[in-house]
Design a protein around this nucleic acid. Structure first.
Lengths: 154, 154
DNA sequence: CGCATATTGTTCCAAATGGAACAATAAAAG
DNA sequence: CTTTTATTGTTCCATTTGGAACAATATGCG
């Protein structure tokens, strides 16, 4: 250790892009996640659920699992808690007895708006050194890769 | 659900860059992580430990915790398991009785090389649609942001 | 139709996780 | 020097996590 530069690994690691991506993800999500847990008592699967349902009309638990790449049972538990707390509504799908359609309630939406602020703020801090153009470029390239990733595993 | 486009959220989410970053991180890390756990029986903190020690001469457990943004106790446990398995060496710091200097062994390094392959391969799949120039641009911008993030919390 | 196979949501259980408190050591303050 | 304050690594404990098995329903195929 000593006072070596702890960031040299950004260049020496065998998978530099993957490392930087996960590093950035951690840098954004961990502090925001801690604050959200502390201030609202929500675990990650729960605010992911809110986020998904805020941007789609109605989803099944399975949809949320796919979108968020989390195991179904994690989502299942989150659904129960959010139902109990009144942030979600659930209605059986008339065409398929196995699945249920989930919708966010007004109070769920309101909670999501408050939580998004935490993530948006931390995102802006982490990306604060990029110029407007750099940030737009980064964003566009990440979208391209993310669309590819989404397609890879479908 | 229906067959709506599950990727529309990339554009509608309140924190688009943060969302894309974590989405990409998940897309790369989750499959690789599962495979590593299955094939080598290592949990995440353990291969993170290997990765850190493969790229620094000697680190304390605390250094690793800082580099990887994980709680100290998680790292502490990983250190014990890796010591037992012979992937690490530990020596008390002569100048500071509280800390111990960790080094990777030859077999630890060998294991790290094999594991990196999983991450590198998945990284290349996910970034496969980017041109060489695009990928270089993405990589450079992420490094800039990551360096900023590293500085933010020190 | 009838039977194999797949999918959805759930429960079970063992393992991983992380906050908090702790002892040991070091550094800072008086 | 003595007394606070900080840091390191560890253990404890409650919570979260995710793989596996499960029942219920749906789909594919003969």
């Amino acid at each position: 250790m000593a006072n070596e530069d702890l960031t040299q690994i950004f260049d020496t690691i065998e998978y530099p892009e993957a490392y930087r991506i996960t590093y950035l993800a951690n840098a954004i999500v961990f502090p925001a996640y801690s604050a959200i847990k502390k201030d609202f008592g929500l675990v990650r699967a729960e605010y992911i659920l809110l986020a998904c349902l805020s941007h789609f009309d109605a989803l099944t638990a399975q949809d949320v699992a796919r979108i968020s790449r989390r195991p179904r049972n994690t989502i299942s538990r989150a659904v129960h808690r959010m139902l109990d707390d009144g942030y979600l509504d659930r209605a059986p799908d008339p065409d398929d007895g196995r699945q249920a359609r989930l919708r966010i309630t007004a109070s769920g939406k309101e909670l999501h708006v408050r939580i998004s602020e935490y993530l948006r703020r931390r995102q802006d801090e982490v990306l604060g050194t990029l110029s407007k153009e750099e940030r737009a470029t980064l964003s566009a390239l990440m979208k391209k890769a993310a669309l590819n990733a989404a397609q890879l595993d479908e």
